[in-house]
Every structure is written in C-alpha cells, then in structure tokens.
Design a protein around this nucleic acid. Structure first.
Lengths: 335, 335
DNA sequence: CTGAAAGCGCTTACAG
DNA sequence: CTGAAAGCGCTTACAG
C-alpha cells in the first residue's frame, strides 16, 4: 500500500505545525483565528496530496468512533435485511457507520459479538436480543454503554426498546378469525421465552378466552432452527390427528414460510380447509395460490426510531424510552 | 461510560511494565522468556479486572484493523443479504470483522462509501461494483489496497473477481427453451453496461443466432430502479402489441419478481401463454401458481471464494485471480 | 495568530 | 528475564 498522507506531510510542505493543519481541516480556522493565506495554502496542499484523515487515530484520541454496533438474528432473512438497511441509512445521516453481526438467535454468539464490537470501541449498540441474553445485555448497560433493543425487550430492565404491541397484534388477528366463524384456531410459535413471543401467544389466548374457547387453545411450539420436516410433523399433528384445527396463526416470518411450504404439498387447501395468518410479510405471501393475510411490523419506522433513540443516548439523554409502534394487518384471501 | 481498563492499569497493579503485560496477553511469554510467576500474576489480574484490549489503539500502532469493507447493491435484497451473511461468517473465521454499506447501484454513493471505509482503515474491500465505478475501483487498486469484485468484473483491469459464467448461463437457458419448441423468446435485462449483464444478453443472442433466429431477438431494457408499472409497460409491449413473445428470460432477481407481479394480474397464463425463466431464485418463485424455472448463482461459494481471495491478497499474494463458478438450473413448471 | 508538547492505548525494537 | 522509550496519526489545552 502506498504511504498514506498524514497531517505531518501537509504541515511540512506548508511549513507550519500539525496543529494548524488540524484546525483548518476541521473548520476551526475562525475560532482559532488562523491567518487567511495560511488557511488557503493548507487547503490547497491537502487537496493536492489528496489527504484523508485517519479515523482510527482520531478515534483513539477523541474516545469515540462514530460507529454503531448492530446485531440481528440473521442478516440473510429479508425481515432483518430490511431492518439493517434502514438502520444503515439512518445512521449514515448522522455520520455513523455500522459494524454488524448475526447472532443466529444464539446468546453465546451474541456474547462473542458484543465482545469484539466493544473491543472495536463502537459508541453504542442496536440489538435484536436472542433468548437468554439478559445477562449479557445487562452487563453492557451497567457499563453505561448506550444500547437500544429492537423487535424485543427485556423484562425488568430499564433499556430503550422499539417494538410493536405484539399482544394486540395477535389479539386482533384472533378476533378477526373468530368473527369469520373459525373456532378451532391454533397458534404456531417458536419455543422461546422472549417477550414478543409470549405477548403474541398471550394476545391469542386472551381472545380465545373472551370467546369462551379456552378449551380450543392450541399452542404449537417449534424450535428456531426447524426444518420443513419439523413443521410438517407439527402441522400434521394439528390438522390431521388431534384436533382438526380450522385456522392457523403463525408468529414469525420464517415459521410462516415453512407453513407455506407445507401447504404447497398438502391435500388440505387454504382457506377452504384451513385459514392461514402469517407474520411480517414476504413476497412469497403474495404469490401463494391463495394470497396470505398477515400481520406486519413497521420495520422502517422501527429502524429509524432505534437509531434516533441511540443518538439521543449518545448525546447524553439518560431517560429510558420504550417505543411501541402500531402494526398493520394486510387482508388477502387466506382466511 | 465507566473507565475502561488499560494495559497500564494491569501493569501498575502487578508492578511491572506495560511491555511485559502486552507480551503475556499476546501469548509471547515464551519467546520473550517472561518469568513464570509474573505470567501467572498478569493473567490473574487481567481476568480480575476483566481487561479488554482496545482494538483501535492496536490498529493504529500495527497499521491494520482486521476489518473488511463490504459494499453490495442493497442489503435488503435477499440475494445480497445471503451473500453478506456468508462473507460475514467466512471473514469471522479468519478473525476479520465486516464494515458494510449499500451502493444502490449508484457509483457516487460507492465513491463516498469507499472514502469513509478507507478513512476507517479497512484492510481490504469486497465490492459488487455498480455501473460507472471503473474509475473509483481503479483508483483503489492503484493505491494497492486489496480488493475483490464479486458478482461482476471490470474489463481490462487486473482485479480479482468471483462470478459465474453468465454467458453460458443464459446460452443454456435459451437453448432449453428452444429445445422445448419456443421460438419467439425475449430477454428482460437492466439498462447496464456491466459485464454480467452484457454476458447474459450475449449468451441469449448467440443461442438465438445459432438457431437462425436472429430476427426474433428481443432485448427489453429496464432501469434498475423500476416500478411495477415500468415492468407492465415493457411486458405489455412485448406480449400484447409488437411481437407476441412466447417465452421470457429475466436476468436478475428483482426483474424476475417484478415479472411475477405482472403475471399475477395478467390474463396471460404461465406457461400456457408465456414461458418464464427467472434468475437468482427467491422463495416467491416456488409459490407462484406455476413454480418458476430459474438460473441460480452459487452465492455461498461466491462469498467464500471472495473472502479467500481477499485473505490471500492480505497475506501478500500478488497474482490476479479470476474465479468463474458454475451456475445451476432449477427446473420447475414455468416452461 | 502560531507552535511545542502531551496524550489516547497499544506494540516492539533496543538495551541491559 | 525485564523496562524505558519511541511511535502509530491525530486533537487540544497551554503558552507565547
């Protein structure tokens, strides 16, 4: 690599100290009252040598890096891909860059990622916390590192978070099905104690109970890293054996997609035999033979708000903020 | 933020110099022949204080950051999302982190991203270069900064690149259609002089010519940021007015998806009225009423190879390598 | 208006 | 076996 140009090179060429060069290039020539012709000369030489400041040096000196650490479950998942994209753009607007990683919903991976990002001195974090990461998040927050949780929150901790009202989302979806006359409704969720998942299940249960259908409550739990065969086993059980379920509510993007693959090869037809409500949306929903009705989170807004909250913290705000955004319900033909 | 622990804190507590602490914590206690009990004490104190090295300081001193700059067109696009994920994992294996950005196929944005990433002293770049970025890429390469292009290459420049044989991909796809008896075949491509696009068009043209169908060659060009209406206009022209096209080959992921939305609302049926070949794959392809036959690039392999080539360069390799990987053809029911 | 100097937290030749 | 010291490229109080 060709030798990089430093402040010193410019200083020498102009015949001044590096201090002066630093002032000028950082726009402080007014307050430091640098001589007019010196300013001009420095600018010229900087341009001529194509000077680029070394952010690493600057970061070391100033104590901050203008970098945000972003950890999502899996960047290959379009839901998170979009989220990351929004956060990237929004962070850029404020002069921040993003250093990111995927946790695969694994709290150990999360811990390792937090460590490396901390070592790299990110100024703050935006995190989609996996199950079991409470301790790691708490440790971060105790070190007074700015942090915003997105898509999920931790119970009992005062940490900024941005998410939808998951309880209401499934509560309304369940009522939507009940209104249409479905009674034997099941919910398909991840095995997870995370707040959004328990809220999603909670909203469904409440709606069922209010209708006096507590006996018809069916909660099917599937692990995060499930295969299509796992899904088939669960749905076979729900639809063919046990309980002749009439309607299904899926609680994540990837569960919904797995569900679609099941019905793609099934004798059972949507919505004639079974109604289907998806979560988070995906182009596949639109192209399923019976376009899928689904609950969708305002990812763009969530991304923007999370950056805004983080910037507030970086600017010294100390009050904890929990933002609940409104979900939407896209009605198509699957119910 | 609570004061971070530095080498100096450990050194003071143990009562030795920072040099010694540095040696021990970097595993050089053997070659530097540090006293056994000193090693033990340093380890203990480091653990006790929960010491974390400051990578920024280390980077400044050592001249490298163990960071890769990654620029794709749009991380929200699952094709690139998957690519980024693979690169992230692969880079981590070698101890590198990834600083990334989306160019939106805009060479000015690319230039700005390259600048900020350079200022942040990334050790090398993996880039999906947009049209018109030849100069920017060349400048990087002349500064002898390690760089690997992925998905595309620059003509006439000796820069490592990883891509498929796009010419053969569409050549074979066109022949597949010809074998099935289709004659009036059109290709839908982006307005772009980029190498893969011209190769994709070239392969199609060649196959048509070999069959004596040069008069039936229809190349429909659509801009990168097209709307569904743009696509509808193009396809209406192709299918209804001008030329009664019998088969369509789409040359990117997002063009294919837009095409699917068109046929979702069209009187024309796939494959009865028009055959459809997609590119790159997407879950939506599987759920279209007539599952889509498509050409798919080996994204995982591409990601891995690009990291490998970059690491080779970082380790001093100076020979230019152009890797061409094999595409696959997924045969479903759309032809 | 300008410069010498300290210091951010590391690593590493060098000397002993 | 161990330490004093220089230096990576910046910024910034301080002195003049």
């Amino acid at each position: 690599m060709g030798k990089r140009i430093s402040l010193k090179d410019i200083a020498e060429k102009v015949g001044v100290s590096t201090a002066l060069v630093s002032y000028v290039l950082n726009g402080k020539e007014k307050e430091k009252r640098v001589g007019k012709d010196v300013v001009k000369k420095i600018r010229e030489v900087a341009a001529e040598l194509n000077y680029r400041p070394n952010q690493i040096a600057r970061s070391l000196r100033q104590g901050w890096t203008k970098t945000i650490g972003l950890i999502v479950a899996d960047i290959a998942n379009p839901f998170f891909g979009t989220m990351v994209r929004v956060i990237e753009d929004e962070a850029n607007k404020f002069g921040y860059n993003v250093l990111f990683g995927s946790s695969d919903e694994d709290s150990e991976k999360l811990g390792a990622l937090i460590d490396t990002l901390c070592n790299r001195q990110v100024d703050g974090f935006i995190i989609v916390p996996p199950e079991g990461s409470d301790a790691a998040i708490k440790r971060l927050s105790e070190r007074e590192i700015p942090i915003v949780l997105i898509d999920r929150k931790m119970k009992g901790q005062n940490i900024d978070s941005v998410l939808i009202d998951n309880y209401t989302a499934t509560y309304e979806a369940t009522n939507y099905l009940l209104d249409k006359g479905y009674k034997r409704i099941a919910i398909v969720a991840n095995k997870s104690s995370l707040n959004p998942m328990s809220e999603r299940i909670g909203g469904y249960c409440e709606a069922m109970k209010e209708e006096g259908l507590e006996k018809e409550i069916h909660i099917e739990l599937i692990k995060y890293e499930h295969t299509r065969a796992d899904m088939a086993e669960s749905l076979d059980k729900l639809l063919l054996k046990e309980s002749k379920i009439e309607a299904l509510i899926f609680t994540t993007n990837s569960l919904s997609i797995s569900g679609l693959y099941y019905f793609r090869n099934s004798e059972l037809k949507v919505p004639e035999d079974v109604a289907f409500i998806g979560f988070d949306g995906d182009e596949a929903f639109d192209f399923f033979y019976s376009p899928i009705t689904y609950i969708v989170q305002p990812v763009e807004e969530m991304g923007k708000e999370s950056v805004r909250l983080l910037i507030d913290q970086l600017n010294g705000s100390r009050k904890t903020v929990q933002i609940r955004l409104k979900h939407s319900f896209i009605e198509q033909q699957s119910c």
